[in-house]
């Protein structure tokens, strides 16, 4: 688990958050209030959804899962993304992510990482504050290390 946390506040602009993700090659960044309570996550998936019409992101088997009839070119897609550049990041943050607890059993952590395939926030159950993030690299490196 990483405890030297990089986070953003709910008011952070979408553009700034995207620059942060790109600059550090992160897949997601936690959004926290001033007391370190977790409010959501902003991830590369959110960036992709901002570049699509909003109904296109409503689930893979959703009603608009196929929009090949829209002939948008590169510039159209970029325009859509840039339209949201100055919005606060909290407007688009996902809230359907899994949260880990510091004492979660290892099998649960592995299964959760397998499901979500990204960084996972770790939250203290007593204070509900964000205490760290876990990536599958952290876990796998540790696991693989001990194998002869």
């Amino acid at each position: 688990m990483k405890t030297d946390l990089i986070t953003v506040s709910p008011d952070t602009k979408v553009g700034e958050a995207i620059r942060l993700l790109f600059g550090r090659h992160f897949r997601s960044v936690p959004i926290v209030d001033e007391d370190m309570h977790l409010i959501g996550q902003f991830s590369v998936r959110d960036i992709l959804s901002l570049a699509m019409p909003c109904v296109a992101g409503m689930g893979l088997s959703g009603p608009m899962s196929d929009i090949t009839f829209m002939p948008d070119d590169f510039e159209d897609v970029r325009r859509r993304l840039s339209d949201n550049w100055g919005d606060p990041v909290s407007k688009y943050a996902l809230d359907d992510y899994i949260v880990l607890r510091p004492n979660d059993p290892m099998t649960h952590v592995v299964q959760a990482l397998y499901r979500c395939r990204a960084y996972m926030p770790v939250v203290d159950p007593d204070t509900e504050k964000l205490v760290g993030v876990v990536s599958y690299w952290d876990v796998l490196e540790k696991l693989v290390d001990g194998i002869e």
Partner: peptide, 14 residues
């Protein structure tokens, strides 16, 4: 409406 409402949202957005 399950079929028409999503296309409507797409068209009005455009």
């Amino acid at each position: 409406v399950l079929l028409i409402a999503p296309v409507t949202l797409l068209i009005t957005e455009e």
